[in-house]
């Protein structure tokens, strides 16, 4: 299963719900305003780090760059571009978008 989150974790609970429901071995891709969660120093970073042993966390590079956050990404988070986004979708049988 691929989980996709696009809302800021400091504004809505989408990421929190996603991390609660995502089962071990799932992938979580953060896009748009959700990418702030994988940057160091923020409150959401701790939630991501706690989830990392069980989940592979991805973030969309162009969204981090657009927000001036590309230099602050947590270790262990894999960055993908739009091509990588498509690959992730095709590699997984199901997608859940936490709108």
């Amino acid at each position: 299963m691929l989980h996709i989150v696009n809302k800021s974790a400091t504004e809505r609970n989408s990421l929190e719900s996603c991390l609660r429901m995502a089962t071990k071995g799932s992938a979580v891709l953060l896009i748009e305003d959700a990418v702030y969660a994988v940057t160091s120093g923020g409150e959401a970073a701790a939630k991501i780090q706690a989830a990392m042993p069980d989940l592979q966390i991805y973030a969309l590079g162009p969204d981090l760059e657009a927000r001036g956050m590309a230099g602050r990404v947590l270790d262990g988070v894999k960055l993908v571009d739009y091509g990588g986004f498509v690959d992730l979708v095709t590699e997984h049988n199901t997608c859940q978008s936490w709108l």
Binding site: S8, T10, E11, P62, D63, A66, R67, G68, A70
Partner: peptide, 23 residues
């Protein structure tokens, strides 16, 4: 305040998402 502080982050590059860099 809140996520609004993100509006003022320096070093944005919006080319990849094809929107205006209004920062």
């Amino acid at each position: 305040t809140d996520d609004g502080v993100y509006e003022l982050i320096k070093g944005m590059n919006t080319k990849g998402i094809e929107v205006k860099d209004f920062s």
